[in-house]
């Protein structure tokens, strides 16, 4: 055993006193930790969000463009009953769901390979390979897909010899592009989640006679599920609110984001925009409520 120098007696300063107070009063410690972040999130975000929702119950004077603060349910009724909003909501939901499914299907094998098969060196290279596309700006990538999917584009050029053809601009193009844009955000949490699954567990399953597929289905999948759901939150919510990609490759289609955007930007009708914004808010809250129990929210 080596000898340790005696720990010097702490000086009696106010800082020391504060430290003693904090270590004996966990509640004070908690308060100190929480004050700043809660102040920030509460003041900046929650207040802003609530005020936006309140605006949904106001209306706009169409001549001067000013908001008049008289309570009305008109906007909510318009959104609930207008066939335009129903069609667009369904279209948006469909796109968001498909994007999410595609992304999970693509992310699972990659994440599994990265976490369980690749050598540490390879792992590092793969993480870089997955993260790098994030840095080529969103708009640049969307325009690149516009070029790829064009009638004259690479895709047509690649598949034409096999009798295929590019889907052109429209909803399929939107789904492809959005899946592309959000893929890294889905791979990363799934990779992190799979990495946390101990290898010993998989070996135990193998020792007990389970073959690869059953092991994957009954051992890996349940353990990785929270991480997968965490990934879906990204792709689902990012797709739900997107309006730029659909503008670039979506042909003549519009999504919920476009309706919100045009009502804020073009129509200068913030109350109606807020009412439309309620649709994705309700959907997301519903989704978060559903997945809350799985522990997915800790895996984002």
């Amino acid at each position: 055993m080596t000898t340790h120098a005696p720990v010097p007696r702490p000086r009696e300063t106010t800082a020391r006193a504060a430290s003693v107070f904090l270590s004996t009063h966990p509640r004070a410690r908690l308060a100190l930790l929480l004050t700043a972040p809660l102040f920030w999130l509460g003041l900046v975000y929650i207040v802003a969000l609530v005020l936006l929702l309140v605006t949904a119950f106001w209306s706009v004077d169409s001549f001067t463009g000013q908001i008049s603060q008289t309570w009305t349910l008109d906007n909510i009724i318009t959104v609930l009953t207008g066939s335009l909003y129903q069609t667009v909501t369904l279209r948006t939901l469909g796109v968001a769901l498909l994007v999410t499914i595609i992304d999970v299907a693509l992310a699972l094998p990659i994440a599994f390979y990265m976490a369980k098969v690749a050598t540490p060196r390879m792992q590092r290279i793969l993480v870089i390979a997955v993260l790098t596309p994030l840095w080529a700006s969103y708009l640049v990538k969307a325009y690149a897909w516009r070029s790829v999917l064009s009638q004259d584009g690479i895709l047509e050029w690649l598949v034409a010899p096999f009798g295929g053809s590019t889907p052109g601009y429209g909803l399929p193009a939107t789904i492809i592009t959005l899946s592309y844009l959000w893929l890294p955000y889905v791979i990363l949490p799934i990779y992190a989640g799979l990495e946390r699954v101990p290898d010993s567990l998989l070996e135990a399953s193998g020792d007990l006679g389970a073959r690869t597929w059953p092991t994957l289905r009954h051992v890996v999948l349940p353990l990785a599920l929270p991480a997968i759901i965490a990934g879906t939150i990204f792709s689902f919510s990012l797709s739900l609110g997107d309006y730029i990609t659909v503008n670039i490759v979506g042909g003549a289609n519009q999504m919920l984001g476009n309706l919100v955007y045009t009502n804020v930007g073009a129509a200068n009708n913030l109350p109606l925009a807020s009412a439309i914004a309620l649709i994705p808010i309700v959907i997301i809250f519903g989704y978060l409520f559903l997945v809350r129990r799985t522990g997915a929210l800790d895996n984002l």
């Binding site: 325009y143 009638q151 004259d152 979506g250 003549a252």
Partner: peptide, 23 residues
């Protein structure tokens, strides 16, 4: 007319590309 529309445009890069490629 909407039934025949391929896409609506507002930025002119999009319009230039679409006419150049024949979309």
């Amino acid at each position: 007319q909407r039934a025949s529309i391929g896409e609506y445009w507002s930025d002119y890069l999009k319009e230039i590309q679409a006419f150049e490629t024949g979309d």
